[in-house]
Simulated assay, not measured.
Amino acid sequence: MIERTLVLIKPDGVQRQMVGKLLNIFEESGLKVVGLKLVKPKKENVEKHYAADEKWMVSVGTKTKASYAEKGVKLDKTELEIGQEVRNKLLSYLVGKPTVAIALEGNEAIYAVRKIIGSTEPKKADPGSIRGRFGTDSYAKADSEDRAVRNLVHASEDKENADREIYIWFDKDELLDYTVANEPYL
């Protein structure tokens, strides 16, 4: 099934001059770039992207608590409080810093991109994934410095998020429909 998804090359990926390398990985995987731009995100856009959605924040907080529990560390904050902190760190990290927004299209693009980028925490990501291969950060280091984890890229989690996120970063007329030479073979 052909679908579209959003990828953001976060400020750490831009600062490390990895934009071309990461684009190449997506294209070599058979994904087609249908939207691309370098942006300095405004607060309103980032707040829409990481919406103050209680369900999302609780989910993030739950994953964070579980990650710490694996290390034998008990967090006293609620899942919602942890999720709010993570959101605030992400807002602080992205607002006003160079970021590349990419809309990709391809067969099961959302799943393909999630597999290509790897686990959110670089040290836990598969070695062949973008985060596993190029990521150097960890949750522990990010927490010790009270900042968001530097994991190079963001990718839409599912179809609902992809449909929402793409139009936060792109106007409809900025997304192109065209055919690439290898499409009949993919």
Score class of each variant (00 low, 15 high):
Lys10Phe: 05
Lys48Val: 03
Glu105His: 02
Asp171Leu: 12
Lys115Cys: 03
Lys37Ser: 09
Asn24Tyr: 08
Thr179Gly: 07
Leu176Cys: 13
Ile166Asn: 08
Thr120Asn: 08
Lys21Glu: 15
Arg133Ala: 13
Pro41Asn: 06
Pro98Gln: 09
Leu75Phe: 09
Lys89Val: 04
Ala148Glu: 07
Lys10Ala: 01
Leu31Glu: 09
Asn24Leu: 07
Ser59Leu: 05
Asn107Glu: 12
Leu90Ile: 15
Lys40Cys: 04
Asp158Pro: 03
Lys40Glu: 13
Ile9His: 02
Ile117Asn: 14
Ile117Pro: 15
Ile166Lys: 07
Leu36Glu: 13
Ile102Cys: 06
Asn182Gln: 11
Ala148Gly: 03
Lys172Ser: 15
Gly72Thr: 05
Ala103Thr: 01
Pro11Thr: 04
Val19Gly: 04
Ala162Cys: 05
Ile117Arg: 13
Val58Ala: 13
Ala103Glu: 03
Ile2Cys: 00
Ser59Phe: 00
Glu27Ala: 02
Asn182Trp: 14
Glu28Thr: 00
Thr62Arg: 12
Glu108Trp: 00
Lys43Pro: 09
Glu27Ile: 00
Asp12Gly: 02
Lys172Trp: 12
Ala181Tyr: 14
Asp163Lys: 04
Lys32Pro: 06
Val149Arg: 02
Thr62Lys: 14
Leu75Asn: 10
His49Gly: 07
Gly13Thr: 01
Ile168Asp: 13
Glu145Asp: 04
Ile2Gly: 00
Ala181Arg: 14
Ala112Gln: 10
Leu91His: 11
Phe26Thr: 00
Thr64Ser: 02
Asp12Tyr: 06
Ile117Met: 14
Glu165Ala: 08
Gln84Gly: 01
Lys21Trp: 03
Val73Met: 06
Arg147Met: 05
Glu165Ile: 01
Met18Ile: 00
Leu104Gln: 05
Pro11Lys: 05
Lys172Arg: 15
Asp146Ser: 05
Gln15Lys: 11
Phe170Val: 06
Gly135Ile: 10
Ile102Asp: 09
His154Ala: 08
Phe26Met: 09
Glu174Cys: 11
Leu94Asp: 11
Glu47Leu: 11
Asp12Cys: 04
Leu90Asp: 04
Glu28Pro: 00
Ser144Ala: 12
Arg150Cys: 01
Lys55Asp: 15
Lys97Arg: 15
Pro41Gly: 06
Leu152Asp: 09
Glu27Asp: 03
Asn182Lys: 08
Tyr185His: 07
Thr62Cys: 02
Asn88Val: 01
Leu91Thr: 09
Ser119Glu: 15
